[in-house]
């Protein structure tokens, strides 16, 4: 997807993210932060987003991730929590500085480092997959598409999709375990 195409669909995706943020936080300020962070995260995925396809499900998942990210940051930083209560924006990134889920930002540095290593190991293992395996793996993991939706988009039979996805996951699992053991 090009940037122009993304700018064309961005307003609709922003409204979706606003509604998710509003339903979670109950105020417009935090909802605006969610929408802003969500659009920034989606912009990073622009290369992987296909043109002509609705990305509503992805936008909602990204918005939910941003909500949880904001909650984790507020838990770890009382100052941020106080600022949030006063209605100020809380900035954050979807990747990079943000600890992966399953690891509380209030955890020890060792746990934080462990989580970061796992995160990088997963990314490396996914990069080593075949293009077809990687595409289907990401369609399931990142975009959250069901098998039926993947069949519609790829015109691949459901059993084939299942086997390809299975093979990809087992490869990634084995590679990550090997990487963490060493």
């Amino acid at each position: 997807m090009t940037q122009e195409e993304f700018e064309h669909i961005a307003p609709a995706l922003r409204e979706l993210m606003l509604s998710v943020g509003r339903s979670f936080f109950g105020n417009d300020d935090d909802a605006e932060d969610v929408a802003q962070e969500g659009l920034v995260a989606l912009l990073r995925f622009i290369d992987r987003m296909e043109s002509g396809v609705r990305h509503d499900a992805l936008a909602i998942r990204v918005a939910k991730h941003c909500c949880m990210d904001m909650v984790r940051k507020r838990k770890s930083s009382p100052i941020l929590a106080l600022q949030a209560s006063k209605g100020r924006a809380v900035s954050g990134k979807m990747h990079g500085d943000v600890a992966p889920p399953g690891c509380d930002t209030g955890a020890s540095p060792h746990e934080h480092l462990e989580a970061k290593e796992l995160y990088e190991a997963v990314n490396e293992a996914v990069k080593h997959l075949k293009p077809s395996e990687r595409r289907l793996f990401e369609m399931r993991q990142i975009e959250g598409l069901e098998l039926d939706d993947i069949v519609k988009q790829t015109n691949i039979a459901k059993p084939s999709i299942k086997s390809i996805v299975s093979a990809a996951r087992k490869k990634v699992f084995a590679e990550i375990k090997e990487r963490l053991r060493t």
Partner: peptide
């Protein structure tokens, strides 16, 4: 389940494979 604390290492790997979007969506819901 796999995003909880004090889980086996294999479960942590699965959590990493599922990805932050899936885990956060589950926690959000």
């Amino acid at each position: 389940e796999v995003a909880r604390e004090d889980v086996p290492d294999d479960w942590k790997v699965i959590a990493g494979m599922l990805g932050e979007l899936t885990v956060d969506e589950a926690l959000f819901d």
